[in-house]
């Protein structure tokens, strides 16, 4: 992380551009005509209800699924991301919700998995030093990098997964629910980390259900609903607007609840007066 990144586009330039991307699983259209842009040095939050297609979109960009139609442009070039390897080579790193760590391997092996230093005689010392340096920079509290992942807690695993995605100096990093399993302090650390990554000129895509986290770090908020674009917001948009876009109605479970609470407190206030 400390060395200068080369080949990063200047801030504000579009790194990733999706045009009319669709994905069908049999008769189900998980994504329909999705348009999205990510610029260098920008955090884009992807929000939506369960089943809105967020994870499918991430998997397409990570090379796990191929889109059924539409184009993906990366640094101005149209690309076909046909395997996870291709995505990594392009510079798209992903932290999946299930973290995708090998529990039988230790932290160092997981960090460098698929990109080991000196493939014909693994440079264990070099990798361990790099691992410690990286984890220190992320202010991560991992007791030992030579213990198998199985012995780590959920938050520690999340940290390892994020550290791994940064190891390859990517241009874009995607985080699928990065704070879902984390405690208060660790969430703040991850948010700090996201900002640090953005300030280095990387594009960040973050998926989260936590509106507070999203508004804390995002520069733009892209709302998906039932596999379609449903508006782009700035972080100063009100909670109500966001929830309306996510659920597809101004009249929804969240607003009804808020109304009820408001009336209740109003009534209470009236009684005591």
């Amino acid at each position: 992380m400390t060395q200068e990144r080369s080949g990063l586009p200047p801030k504000g330039e579009t790194i990733l551009k999706l045009t009319k991307v669709s994905k069908n699983f049999g008769a189900v259209s998980a994504l329909t005509d999705i348009d999205m842009e990510v610029k260098a040095g920008e955090v884009v939050a992807l929000v939506g209800d369960n089943g809105a297609g967020k994870s499918t979109l991430v998997k397409i960009l990570a090379g796990v699924h191929l889109p059924s139609s539409g184009t993906v442009e990366f640094c101005g070039r149209e690309v076909a991301i046909d395997s996870p390897g291709t995505a990594l080579e392009l510079g798209i790193a992903t932290v999946f919700q299930d973290l995708a760590l090998c529990e039988n391997l230790d932290v160092v092996a997981n960090l460098f998995l698929g990109h080991e230093m000196s493939p014909w005689g693994l440079d264990e010392v070099g990798m361990e030093v790099r691992a410690w340096t990286l984890l220190k920079e992320l202010a991560a509290r991992i007791p030992s990098v030579r213990e198998p992942i199985a012995s780590l807690s959920g938050g520690q695993r999340q940290t390892v997964a994020i550290a791994r995605s940064l190891l390859l100096n990517p241009k874009i990093i995607m985080l699928d629910e990065p704070t879902a399993a984390l405690g208060v302090a660790q969430t703040a650390e991850v948010l700090n980390l996201i900002e640090r990554v953005r300030d280095r000129g990387l594009g960040v895509i973050i998926i989260s259900h936590n509106m507070e986290d999203v508004r804390a770090v995002a520069d733009r908020i892209v709302v998906l609903r039932l596999g379609r674009n449903n508006g782009i917001f700035t972080p100063d948009a009100s909670n109500q607007e966001l929830v309306a876009a996510i659920t597809g109605a101004t009249e929804n479970a969240v607003s009804r609840r808020q109304e009820r609470k408001a009336t209740e407190s109003h009534e209470k206030g009236g009684l005591s007066a």
């Binding site: 390897g85 990594l88 090998c102 039988n104 391997l105 998995l113 698929g114 005689g121 693994l122």
Partner: peptide, 25 residues
């Protein structure tokens, strides 16, 4: 134990999907 190939074998045996997503063939 000392080559990338061996590391990949252990990774595939431990978590095939994770290995695939790490770019291992």
């Amino acid at each position: 134990t000392r080559t990338k190939w061996g590391r990949s074998v252990f990774a595939v045996g431990g978590n095939k999907e994770a290995a695939r997503r790490s770019g291992i063939n």
